[in-house]
Amino acid sequence: MENTFKPETIPGYIPNILRAFPVTMEILLISLLISLALGALVTAAGIGKRKWLKAIANSYIAFMRGIPTLILIFLIYLGLPQLAQSVGVDLTGVSKTVFIVACLSLSSSANMAEMMRASYLAVDKGQREAAYSVGMKEFTAFRRIIFPQAFGIAIPALGNNIIMLFKDTSLAFAIGVIDLMGKARAISSASYGANRLEVYIATGIIFWAACIILEYCSKFTEKIYTKGRKKATS
């Protein structure tokens, strides 16, 4: 076995891999929006009064947190079309990106729901009572009093969840989407694997840099948002 590792070639691969960055960003942003919406629904069901809704919300979260994202991807991409075919629905025309967005939204929505529930519960009860006492309706109290405070509490966890979701987008290559990781694999197989280590290190550096930027944004947002606000946690 020859040592063929050429670290000096690593930076050269970065621009080439970055050409797939828009695909990764597209997957990330759409999944993020859907997972936030789904997470909000699950949270609303989880903190509501109806017992059966609560049970559904809790089992949904437990299920999504128990299944590896890769298995969810396989289950939905390979399994769902088979299942759909048996009831007469044809899913063969659906693009791979749609499947990957669906999987990532589902798996991330459980984390989002947990985050939303925790920050909702962290807002002091007295805040709601105070809002009612000045005549606000339930929804107005939520929109103007509870939500702004819960959002401030949620920012660090939201940042973490976004970073996790971003890292999970790297699994899109599992079903052949050409995102950052898919691009890296394409480059390395074009050279029959001769430069695979350099290419994967280059991809790692891209993800690392992006995560550092995301983390910085999350810290910055938290600082700006919580400036001048009193901590309202119970």
């Binding site: 970073i163 890292k167 999970d168 790297s170 699994l171 290559f173 990781m181 890296a184 994967y200 991809t203 790692g204 993800f207 690392w208 840099a209 992006a210 995560c211 550092i212």
Partner: peptide, 8 residues
């Protein structure tokens, strides 16, 4: 913490 598991 920044690099996805599969790349590691």
């Amino acid at each position: 913490r920044g690099v996805p598991m599969v790349i590691l």
